[in-house]
Design a binder for these strands. Structure first.
Lengths: 225, 225
DNA sequence: CTTCAAGTGATTGTCGACAATCTAAAGGTA
DNA sequence: TACCTTTAGATTGTCGACAATCACTTGAAG
């Protein structure tokens, strides 16, 4: 496990550690709510506590861990309310991203999006229950639209921060993406609007897409309706 | 300057340093684009490089400095495009915040908002050109609405991250808040909608409020219109 | 004069160690 | 038994030092 010492170019130990720990947390290898012991992790990865602490700082910034002074760091426990909060933020932001993307996506990017959806479609039609690719394809679609806005800060905010938490939730929650086919249909509709350069419609469709997903979570959290 | 060693309770050196440096950068004491030397700052504040590096990591997370491996950290240079990007993000987010706040603000909070605006109004009427308080009051208004949503992640995102950059811009750019009275009028209109529990209108007004401010910046960046 | 190479100085990244603080077990008292 | 104090252990926060890398000067060749 401790083959970290990358002879590679200028890769920083703290940076590599950050990515490694992010994956470990997101995929549930380090479970939610578990305490993170600096000496233990440092031994496990064969590094000093310095770079590890710096990596933890980064994870705290993303919101994957919570640190309490003189006590230590724990992996966050993502309850339903926090997840709903994330969707509340995503809805207007990604809606806006769609509107901008409708203006700025190149024809080549639109074609690539089309291929992505077809690829995704085929996977679902073949009835691979493989949640991994489904999730990958789902996120990829959203990522590309967000990046197409050209708003670097928006990209960082959504892709580098919030989406880690979503991936974590989907990895650790037993039920994975309750409605993959319906979601893909909605992606197709969004793509159509983008391809028509209809930003207004694309925004509405994306907002509904996220809003529907949010409602599914809402019902899970309060099944007394 | 180096009276950092707080005998206070459990204040972390890295944490205090982070807040201190944030203020220094936001207020322009450390100018935009300037290089940040770890040994120099460490000497100046009488601390080791460890906590200082951790503070820098935090600042990088906020977006106040940029770090390049093996080279060092620089204070970001906020060009107009990046500022526009921030407003692009704020518009839908704070609009949404207003809609939620219209439902969740208590009467007491609404009254406090009212007092805040009256206080602000008086300052402007007395023709204090004091940009500082104007800015303070402006931000306060937005802060309170955002916090009223109860969405902690939204609060962190806007108040703890994006708003530092705005404060930095207003402190360092010569022209400060070109239209304080007009902006206050818009705040009053928003308050009115909030007080009427008209979330839909409050959202629209807030979006326009931010959109107008964005247009002012847009014209500054490209005066050839 | 320009351009490239080597060398020097400073800065960054990483490490191990020590002090301050917290956690938990042991023991004593009501 | 319940509760508080003490104490031992471990963990976190901070420090100073060393190795790796970069920036800049010096010098030489074309």
């Amino acid at each position: 496990m401790q083959n970290l010492r990358n002879i590679d170019k200028q890769s920083l130990l703290s940076q590599d550690l950050g990515e490694l720990l992010t994956e470990a947390i997101v995929q549930g290898v380090i479970p939610q709510g578990s305490k993170i012991s600096e000496p233990e992790l440092a031994r496990r990865y064969g590094v000093s506590r310095g770079p590890l602490r710096e990596a933890m700082l980064k994870l705290e910034g993303i919101g994957l861990v919570e640190r309490i002074p003189h006590v230590g760091a724990r992996v966050v426990e993502l309850n339903c309310q926090q997840l709903l909060d994330i969707y509340t933020i995503r809805e207007p932001l990604e809606g806006m991203a769609c509107r901008l993307a409708a203006e700025r996506l190149t024809q080549r990017q639109l074609n690539e999006l089309h291929d992505l959806l077809e690829h995704h479609q085929q996977y679902l039609d073949d009835n691979h229950g493989e949640a991994y690719f489904d999730q990958q394809g789902d996120f990829d679609f959203h990522y590309r639209i967000i990046k197409a806005t050209g708003n670097q800060r928006l990209v960082t905010l959504l892709c580098d921060e919030l989406y880690h938490l979503l991936r974590m939730y989907r990895s650790t929650s037993a039920r994975q993406h309750a409605r993959p086919k319906r979601a893909l249909q909605e992606h197709w509709a969004i793509w159509q609007a983008l391809n028509d350069r209809d930003g207004e419609l694309a925004e509405i469709l994306m907002r509904r897409h996220i809003s529907r997903a949010r409602k599914v979570i809402e019902q899970l959290s309060s099944p007394d309706s």
